[in-house]
């Protein structure tokens, strides 16, 4: 959405507002997760917020059915029509390629972050062993 699409920078459209809430939840998640004073407590609090954030996703999907605001109904995930009946095949192909690309990028970054976590845990364990 935005200025070029609907002519306004911001409107209290249901889907737009719920997506903005999800963005705030995500920012809050990252802030909570980065608390280092009590890592276990930070992880638990972030997990709870993550679940709340996940509950927002079906709300975002259904918002265009429940509230008739500015956003159009879904183009891809709708039960009555196939995606290629709604979206031009060239756009659908580009979307599919991008989707696969971003999923691969996500798993690559996740594997790197996971490796970092493993190394940090090993460093912590070795330092504890050395001190004891």
């Amino acid at each position: 959405m935005g200025q070029t699409h609907v002519g306004v920078w911001w409107t209290w459209d249901a889907r737009l507002t719920l997506t903005a809430i999800l963005l705030l939840i995500f920012a809050g998640y990252l802030m909570l997760r980065s608390l280092t004073e009590d890592e276990n407590r930070a992880a638990s609090a972030a997990a709870v917020l993550g679940i709340i954030g996940f509950l927002d996703i079906p709300l975002i999907h259904m918002s265009v059915y429940w509230w008739r605001t500015l956003h159009q109904p879904p183009s891809i995930l709708r039960p009555d029509k196939a995606p290629w009946d709604n979206v031009h095949p060239a756009m659908l192909t580009a979307l599919a390629i991008n989707f696969v690309g971003f999923v691969l990028l996500y798993f690559y970054l996740l594997s790197q972050r996971f490796r970092l976590g493993e190394i940090k845990e090993e460093i912590k364990a070795r330092l504890l062993n050395r001190d004891n």
Binding site: L105, L109, Q112, R115, L116, I119, I123, R126
Partner: peptide, 27 residues
């Protein structure tokens, strides 16, 4: 944002690997 995150992650990973290698060597 993605490139900055990737570069930061690489740097943190490299530092952690160096720290772990030094720790192993000292043990």
């Amino acid at each position: 944002a993605i490139l900055i995150y990737w570069a930061t992650l690489k740097r943190r990973l490299r530092r952690a690997q160096t720290e772990l290698a030094q720790l192993r060597a000292s043990e």
